[in-house]
Simulated assay, not measured.
Amino acid sequence: MTTNTATHTGITRWLGIAAILVILDQITKIAITSTFVYGESLPITPFFNLVLVYNKGAAFSFLATETGWQRHFFTAVGIGASVFIIYLLKKNPGERLLSWALALILGGAIGNVIDRVLYGHVIDFLDLYIGNRHWPAFNIADSAICIGAVLFVYDELRRGKKPASST
């Protein structure tokens, strides 16, 4: 019974972090869409703009020019990934680095699924660039997914290292 309580408490913390990310992501998207018109850009620094753009595809606008089927596909992928991540969080609540990675990915996935369901596209507004070369615009959810993925890979590499044999 103690294990169940510990598992419940552990997953609640990680789901709370994911929920905070979803809220932050959605608040920033609401703020940008109520302040900017589509395509509008505001220079902030010599390497960063705020811009309002829509992405009907996935990362780096992958499949963005397709006929619309990708909205449903990426929504289903996001929901499926979220369910699997919750399963992994339930299974590994004490694994801090792994749980951080999963919570970040979960929050980002849900944030972008909300956009796809409500608007048919993901709202992007962060524009990093050097000279005339722009990174594809992104949002808080995308950032969380990327940071979570890096943490996940680092955690897996760290787990894969075995101590040297003493023989």
Rank of each mutant, 00 (worst) to 15 (best):
L42Q: 11
N4A: 13
G10E: 10
A149P: 10
L63W: 08
S99I: 07
I32C: 05
A76R: 05
H134T: 01
G39M: 12
S143F: 08
F48H: 08
G68F: 05
A18G: 08
I44D: 01
W69T: 01
Y54V: 00
L102V: 04
P43M: 11
I140W: 01
R116Q: 08
P136T: 00
R13N: 08
L104M: 14
S99V: 07
F36I: 01
Y129C: 02
I79H: 07
R13Q: 12
G148F: 06
L88H: 07
T45M: 09
A141S: 05
L89K: 03
L157Y: 12
A31C: 08
W14T: 02
L24M: 14
C146P: 01
S99M: 04
L151T: 02
Q70R: 05
M1I: 06
G39R: 12
N112Y: 09
T28F: 10
G39C: 11
S99D: 06
L126Y: 05
C146N: 14
F125R: 00
G78T: 01
H121C: 06
E156W: 05
R159M: 14
V51C: 00
W135P: 14
A18K: 01
E66Y: 04
P93I: 03
T45E: 07
D142G: 07
Y129V: 00
R158W: 10
K90H: 15
C146F: 13
A109M: 05
A109R: 10
A19S: 15
